[in-house]
């Protein structure tokens, strides 16, 4: 290879690559408005991002998959956990994670800081990022739940979920309100007996949780609800 060819490779390679990056950067900026819902990026969301940075959250957690890997990814925390669960974790990590082998620091957050963080997480959860992360894929949860509810005759458990207005606080498939945890997410981590106990007296298992007790239901009814929720489990290798 001659010197001339070597120099040519250097300049051509560099210039082509720089051009690709710059042109696509300009185009990406045009698309960020839609992809990240810039119209919803208000002062609260920005305040939430500042709080997120002030407490160095990102050096334990990942968000959009970036950061440290010591704690769960927060990209879809809002849709997975709901507002109440996030608040409890932020306010009382020492009691929420008292049984956990890994702890979260008590940051003594002000009420406003927590509200800002919730706004931030909510905005982040709506970023169109090619449906990552796979384990918290809303699309998959909705698809599988809707398919199940459409194909099966309505089960006694499902009927009870509707009758007891669970979806006024929880999300399920394409329905519900993100105050409590998504039912599909609960299905990933808890078994039916645990859930039946929890329904009877949530306060006993998760002190401070903002959920009413369902002690007016019989044990059998509570188990029916729990079994329905367990049946929502997706993933585990199959889609």
């Amino acid at each position: 290879m001659s010197d001339k060819v070597a120099k040519w490779i250097f300049w051509a390679g560099t210039i082509i690559s720089v051009l690709v990056l710059l042109v696509l950067t300009i185009d990406s900026h045009k698309q960020f408005n839609y992809l990240t819902n810039v119209d919803k990026l208000d002062a609260r969301v920005i305040a939430g991002k500042k709080t997120f940075e002030k407490h160095n959250c990102n050096d334990c957690h990942t968000i959009l998959g970036f950061g440290s890997y010591y704690a769960p990814d927060l990209t879809r925390a809002y849709t997975r956990l709901g507002e109440d669960s996030i608040q409890r974790r932020l306010k009382h990590p020492e009691s929420v994670f008292s049984d956990s082998f890994r702890k979260m620091p008590q940051q003594n957050l002000a009420g406003q800081e927590i509200a800002d963080l919730l706004a931030f997480f909510r905005w982040v959860s709506e970023i169109r990022n090619n449906d990552w992360p796979p384990q918290h894929s809303e699309t998959r949860w909705k698809r599988s739940t809707d398919k199940m509810l459409a194909s099966a005759a309505i089960s006694p458990g499902a009927a009870l979920v509707l009758q007891e207005n669970c979806l006024d606080c929880h999300t399920l498939g394409s329905r519900g309100v993100a105050k409590g945890q998504r039912l599909e997410w609960i299905a990933q981590s808890r078994d039916a007996l645990w859930m039946a106990d929890f329904l009877k007296n949530p306060e006993a298992i998760a002190p401070g949780v903002d959920m009413p007790a369902y002690d007016h239901l019989s044990k059998e009814q509570r188990l029916k609800i729990a079994e329905f929720i367990v049946s929502l489990k997706t993933h585990r290798g199959e889609d």
Binding site: G13, T14, I16, S17, L21, Q31, F32, L35, R128, W132
Partner: peptide
């Protein structure tokens, strides 16, 4: 530089970019 500069894109898969 040819592979590395545009290769930055391998970090843009899941962050809300086109």
């Amino acid at each position: 530089l040819f592979t590395g500069i545009a290769g930055t894109g391998h970090h843009y898969y899941w962050l809300g970019a086109p």
